[in-house]
Amino acid sequence: MNIESLRNYCLSKAGAAESFPFGEETLVFKVGDKIFLLAGLSNPISFNAKCTPAWALELREKYAAVQPGYHMNKKHWNTVFYNQNLPNSLLTELIDHSYSLVFNSLPQKIQQQIHATISK
């Protein structure tokens, strides 16, 4: 996965939007104004994704390329160095998981608005 495929995959999520609120080196993806992924554009290429605490620890123990979230709550966020031979299926699973956690934490009204926009 490269940065363009990561970007396209994140933007394919319902209600996803991108911005650069922290400067041009960090691409941020949000749903309902809440961050679900931050992608660092400088080397080494990485992204921060939200994760359940138990799975975050399991991933960190299993993969050297998954570390506690840089500049984030380390209990709930991982930094993933995705150019280090992690399978694309795992990368997309981590993105999906992060998106789901954030989407499901949104107020019901916002979730319904997002669903309504994709139903059109």
Results as ranks from 00 to 15, higher is better:
residue 115 H to V: 08
residue 83 N to P: 00
residue 32 G to C: 01
residue 67 Q to K: 13
residue 10 C to Y: 01
residue 2 N to S: 09
residue 104 N to Q: 15
residue 56 A to I: 03
residue 106 L to Q: 04
residue 43 N to R: 15
residue 74 K to Q: 12
residue 80 V to S: 02
residue 64 A to F: 11
residue 50 K to F: 12
residue 55 W to C: 05
residue 19 S to R: 12
residue 88 N to L: 10
residue 49 A to V: 15
residue 65 A to K: 04
residue 78 N to S: 02
residue 62 K to W: 04
residue 52 T to D: 15
residue 53 P to Y: 03
residue 88 N to C: 07
residue 63 Y to Q: 05
residue 45 I to E: 14
residue 11 L to S: 09
residue 11 L to C: 10
residue 40 G to V: 03
residue 37 L to M: 15
residue 106 L to N: 01
residue 111 Q to N: 06
residue 53 P to Q: 01
residue 96 D to P: 05
residue 34 K to A: 04
residue 79 T to Q: 08
residue 91 L to E: 06
residue 25 E to N: 14
residue 97 H to Q: 13
residue 4 E to Y: 12
residue 30 K to D: 10
residue 53 P to H: 09
residue 99 Y to E: 06
residue 112 Q to Y: 12
residue 97 H to M: 11
residue 41 L to Q: 05
residue 30 K to F: 11
residue 10 C to R: 07
residue 2 N to F: 13
residue 108 Q to Y: 14
residue 99 Y to P: 13
residue 28 V to P: 06
residue 6 L to N: 04
residue 16 A to T: 05
residue 39 A to I: 06
residue 111 Q to E: 07
residue 76 H to C: 04
residue 9 Y to H: 08
residue 14 A to L: 05
residue 89 S to N: 13
residue 23 G to T: 10
residue 48 N to S: 15
residue 48 N to K: 00
residue 26 T to P: 02
residue 1 M to V: 13
residue 25 E to V: 05
residue 8 N to I: 06
residue 108 Q to M: 12
residue 116 A to V: 02
residue 41 L to W: 05
residue 80 V to W: 01
residue 37 L to N: 07
residue 108 Q to K: 15
residue 84 Q to A: 12
residue 83 N to A: 08
residue 120 K to H: 15
residue 34 K to I: 12
residue 65 A to S: 12
residue 43 N to V: 12
residue 61 E to G: 14
residue 83 N to L: 13
residue 109 K to N: 13
residue 67 Q to D: 03
residue 22 F to M: 05
residue 33 D to F: 07
residue 43 N to M: 14
residue 1 M to R: 10
residue 81 F to A: 06
residue 113 Q to M: 14
residue 45 I to M: 13
